[in-house]
């Protein structure tokens, strides 16, 4: 079997102005044609924020997100299309599936940020994805300690010493995790503010790149830290 390659595809921003598949009148991103009231397919170019009727911001009120999701679920869910034509049923099924993915992605702040970074890709493609050298060193060393602890006698003097060290490391890493979450939150706010100002000058562009770059960095470091913390929790409880 072939290694499947992950699906790429450009995720465009602008909402497609198009024609109603049924009566050919013009629709501009509405879910139902104004003339014939038929459900319209969510365009492939529609991003998850637009799909849920939200601005492309990183700080989202979970209650608002949920309300939007429920409202659109009532509009799209296949349960309400059983008496409709086959074409409408197929659209409802696709729309509901897209809506569910959109909600799942935006509900989680990290997935939301990852998704936004994907959307804004291009300017940030060159961002390195390997952890910074110091973090890398630290993780490697910790892995060695973990291996030594796992292989050795837990009740021996060495075992107790290793355990104490791992516990200290775990505490430090968890603090680091919390710091990352905090910084991410700050970056979210900064990003949203920048978007709200809507400036398009050189300074704004530089600021935009800086924020995206920093978020990418934190997100990938966060994954490394998270994995090693999981390992630690599994081993020493």
């Amino acid at each position: 079997m072939n290694q499947p390659t992950p699906s790429g595809g450009s995720r465009n921003v602008q909402m497609a102005r198009s024609m109603c598949w049924h009566c050919q009148s013009e629709v501009a991103g509405e879910y139902f044609c104004e003339r014939c009231v038929k459900v319209q397919p969510v365009s492939k170019e529609t991003d998850y924020f637009t799909c849920l009727g939200l601005p492309r911001r990183l700080t989202i009120d979970p209650a608002v997100l949920e309300a939007k999701y429920y409202e659109r679920s009532r509009a799209f869910h296949p349960d309400f299309y059983l008496n409709k034509t086959e074409a409408e049923q197929a659209i409802s099924l696709d729309n509901a599936a897209t809506l569910n993915t959109a909600y799942r992605t935006l509900r989680d702040p990290v997935q939301r940020a990852e998704y936004l970074l994907d959307l804004e890709a291009g300017s940030v493609k060159t961002i390195r994805t390997s952890p910074p050298a110091d973090l890398f060193e630290e993780i490697l060393e910790l892995q060695d300690t973990l291996d030594a602890y796992r292989a050795g006698d837990h009740s021996s003097e060495t075992g107790r010493r290793l355990r104490a060290r791992l516990e200290a490391e775990r505490g430090a890493l968890e603090r680091r995790q919390a710091e990352m979450e905090d910084e991410l939150q700050k970056l979210f706010v900064e990003w949203d503010a920048l978007q709200d100002r809507g400036e398009a000058d050189g300074h704004a562009r530089m600021e935009r790149d800086r924020l995206l770059r920093r978020m990418r960095e934190i997100l990938s470091n966060r994954t490394y830290v998270k994995n090693i913390v999981n390992d630690l929790v599994e081993t020493i409880g």
Partner: peptide, 24 residues
């Protein structure tokens, strides 16, 4: 995952002239 749910995957070939890919 809430249903309906979908996932798309892109498949290609590894040999010249290959006419099929088996999916399990």
């Amino acid at each position: 995952t809430t249903i309906p749910a979908n996932a798309k995957e892109m498949f290609t070939t590894y040999a010249d002239g290959q006419t099929g890919v088996d999916i399990h």
